[in-house]
Design a protein around this nucleic acid. Structure first.
Lengths: 167, 167
DNA sequence: TTAAACTTTCAGTAATTTTTGAAACTTTAA
DNA sequence: TTAAAGTTTCAAAAATTACTGAAAGTTTAA
């Protein structure tokens, strides 16, 4: 496998994984491209490399910036803007975990708390609803707490500590 | 919030979360419905409750069974088949983690190993590709190993051990 | 066997999500 | 200022994904 084949395989695999996890393909592929690029890239560069339109590129770059894993860079003396990826894998993981927690997990936890907190009326179906949503609430809340602890440690705490524990 | 409101809120929230994580809404909602149902439900019950077609119900029940989190039950003396959810939250988490690892993470790890294993040619871009995909490979491989260890422990190892460690 | 009860499959349709491309907007250098 | 260089927005089109419903398939009881 040569450079070009490897690059294409990586970009398309990353795009496919994204899709499976609810992230759109273009967004994941732009990230993949920037992740392996030694230099920041312009919008033109990205459009050309991935064969996607200007609008698509712009919208997805904005999302990647909202996620905090891609940054705008301006080269001195140039009008054009360049885009660069966060390059540290631990920081990438932390950022993704943090954002998914904030946007997706926390709101669900809130609903689970509300739902599992309704008053029992003695019927079997109500008892089951309370019991089962409470269990889910506790799981989600523990997992989220854990994730946030991990995410707020220095970068490779997770690898160092957990691997020792588990191996 | 009364029983019906709580049930509907739970089902729709669970469906929305599924969507965000690449699981289709009907599948997530069927799971939610069975999760809180004190008794196994028939296909008719599910169709009626969620207002979805027979075909849709059948296909998504099959998928839930493939994931190992819903089971077919036949009541003695009845022709109809009934469906019941795995009820233990720890077992649910283990099963989901196990399947996502097998279907989605493992194949990506394989690609990352291949891609990061190409021979360097001294160019900057090739070095960067190798370095960055290797970092991702190591992260994914560690995370996956960890997940599988957790998943293969007795059910609440994760809660017991990790929470102690982290709190 | 057969026919009733029930489930699965799948081609066509519907709904949703993504992408495009051109117009509107913004910034900067002269 | 102004116009060139660049970016963003968004309505419409394309692509993808999910859903329906009816036909085909399966199972069971008589």
């Amino acid at each position: 496998m040569n450079y070009t084949e490897a690059k294409e395989k990586f970009i398309s695999t990353w795009g496919a994984l994204g899709t499976l996890w609810g992230i759109n393909k273009a967004m994941a592929q732009i990230h993949a491209l920037l992740w392996i690029s030694p230099e920041p890239l312009s919008m033109e560069d990205i459009m050309e490399e991935l064969h996607i339109s200007r609008g698509n590129t712009s919208m997805n770059l904005r999302q990647l910036m909202d996620w905090g894993i891609v940054f705008k860079e301006s080269k001195p003396g140039e009008r054009k803007e360049y885009f660069a990826s966060e390059k540290d894998v631990q920081e990438l993981a932390r950022q993704v975990a943090k954002e998914r927690s904030r946007r997706e997990i926390k709101p669900v936890i809130k609903v689970l708390r509300e739902v599992s907190g309704i008053e029992g009326d003695g019927t079997k179906k109500t008892e089951e609803l309370i019991k089962q949503t409470k269990a889910l609430y506790e799981l989600a809340d523990n997992a989220d707490t854990m994730m946030n602890k991990i995410v707020n440690q220095e970068s490779n705490w997770i690898t160092k500590t957990l691997m020792k524990l588990i191996k």
